[in-house]
Amino acid sequence: MGSLAYLLAATAGLTVVTVATRSSFFMLPARIDLPARVERALRYAPACALTAIICQGVFARDHQPYVSVHNNEMWAVLAAAVVFAKTRNMIAMMTVGMAVFTALRLSL
């Protein structure tokens, strides 16, 4: 974890990001519209950004790709994804993910 100054600067910037995105079009003059082309790109950015974060965290170790049968987190996330896609139940999904991870960790 970074230093106190780093974390405070990060937090200040993250707060600005929240205000800038949520209030964006509330603050802009009415004549400025969201062009259809930009709107389309904005539409897909959050899903892609979250996917990139999850994949770099789960399918990698020590800055190298780690797609292996020994990757416990990978199996946990895949199992949780199947459960959530079928049930849309967050608690069931987290329970299964954690259980798979713990079972694999203890069995090896």
Binding site: M1, G2, S3, Y6, A9, A10, G13, L14, V16, V17, T18, A20, T21, R22, S23, S24, F25, F26, D33, L34, E39, L42, R43, A45, P46, C48, A49, L50, I53
Partner: peptide, 24 residues
């Protein structure tokens, strides 16, 4: 992992871009 601050902010911005559509 103390990633560079611009990367931290841009990542949050990308995740939050859906709010720009809500605001519009």
């Amino acid at each position: 992992t103390s990633a560079p601050l611009p990367i931290v902010w841009v990542t949050a911005l990308l995740v939050n871009l859906r709010f720009v559509i809500f605001a519009a």
